[in-house]
Design a protein around this nucleic acid. Sequence first.
DNA 1: ACCATATTTCTAGAGGTCTCGAATTAATGG
DNA 2: CCATTAATTCGAGACCTCTAGAAATATGGT
Lengths: 116, 116
Amino acid sequence: MDHEQAADSLTELGNTHRLAVFRFLVRAGHEGASVGEIQKELGIPASTLSHHLARMTKVRLIRQEKHSRTTICIPEFQNLERLIDFLKEECCAGDAEGKDAALACCRFRGHRVRFA
Amino acid sequence: MDHEQAADSLTELGNTHRLAVFRFLVRAGHEGASVGEIQKELGIPASTLSHHLARMTKVRLIRQEKHSRTTICIPEFQNLERLIDFLKEECCAGDAEGKDAALACCRFRGHRVRFA
DNA sequence: ACCATATTTCTAGAGGTCTCGAATTAATGG
DNA sequence: CCATTAATTCGAGACCTCTAGAAATATGGT
């Protein structure tokens, strides 16, 4: 996952409605949930929900499958994993528990001055 | 980390400038980098950069320490870890490698109909 | 005191996002 | 066919974000 893609996904998850939808869908698993089910669960007006789902689909956080009248929304787990990996690589937090984990794996910077 | 906080942090990371700044700061480690250094590295106009840094500070993705004339920006590694943990919990991707990882740990939903 | 440096605040324009009712499209069943 | 159900598209108002130059603030050096 590159910088741009990561930023796009992060933007979409950075909205409480969309984050709630996504969390719901993740709990629903690979079968996903229909737009109607999401609406019933979260109480978001249909047009608003549709708008948010379209955005999440565009950046491939979810995908939508149409079966006759109902649209099923399914999280793209792989892309979520890619996003998490991107963040983990960034933050160096992947390989340690302690508070100074980042220090341990972040070598960099030639010229720094310490401020006392 | 709760839903709201997570959404706020995700929003801030979901901007290419801010994501670039954050990545740079993470690489800089616990010593951080001054506003001027960030500006030199990324070439963002001072006022624009200041605006983005203020936003990231507000949601505690970074913190700012003032030492005489220079302001040093330091990533809040713990909060980034919390954000990653939040996403990992959400996506069930923490405990498996395979593509069907999510299925394995996401039990839920009474009434689902399969579409063939 | 004066000037250079480091950063923030002010300001304003351009554009994007969010929201949601109303209208629309599409599919199913009677 | 007509009504119903499922979902999307349209339209418009309110609000937020991004951008960046100009002005202001603060500090240090000479």
